[in-house]
């Protein structure tokens, strides 16, 4: 089992390294990630949302639907823990 795990981990790592070969260098300001969608956030966010912190503006406005999902994830986890752990507290043991 451990050998399989080791091989799987190494293969995954090798694949990921293989993929990085054609990636833009670290910190390159002209990489696609920094030049396609995000410039508009930096240019417009403050004007449109009146928020100086752009991360906040994107989090709570442009992509607020993700943030709602994030809140729901926490709610789900909380209810899940209640579902799993609550009953036993009343009468110990099953």
């Amino acid at each position: 089992m451990k050998v399989i795990a080791l091989i799987a981990a190494l293969m995954t790592g090798a694949l990921l390294i293989y993929g990085t070969e054609e990636m833009p260098d670290w910190g390159d300001p002209n990489s696609p990630a920094s030049s396609h969608v995000s410039p508009k956030y930096i240019q417009e966010a403050t004007e449109k949302t009146a928020t100086p912190n752009i991360v906040t503006a994107v989090l709570a406005d442009y992509r607020s639907y993700d943030t709602m999902g994030e809140v729901v994830v926490v709610f789900t986890a909380g209810i899940g823990c209640i579902l799993m752990l609550r009953k036993k507290r009343k009468g110990e043991g099953d």
Binding site: P29, A33, S34, V37, S38, P39, Y41, I42, Q43, A45, T46, I54, V55, A57, V58, L59, R63, D66, T67, G69, E70, V73, V74, T76, A77, G78, C81
Partner: peptide, 27 residues
């Protein structure tokens, strides 16, 4: 606003969500 002067905010936003998801999964 000069775009090159500020780092890309989008990955940070995505990772704020991913951090919360990972915490919830751990819980």
């Amino acid at each position: 606003i000069e775009v090159a002067k500020y780092i890309n905010p989008l990955p940070h936003v995505l990772m704020l969500t991913a951090i919360v998801v990972s915490i919830a999964t751990t819980g």
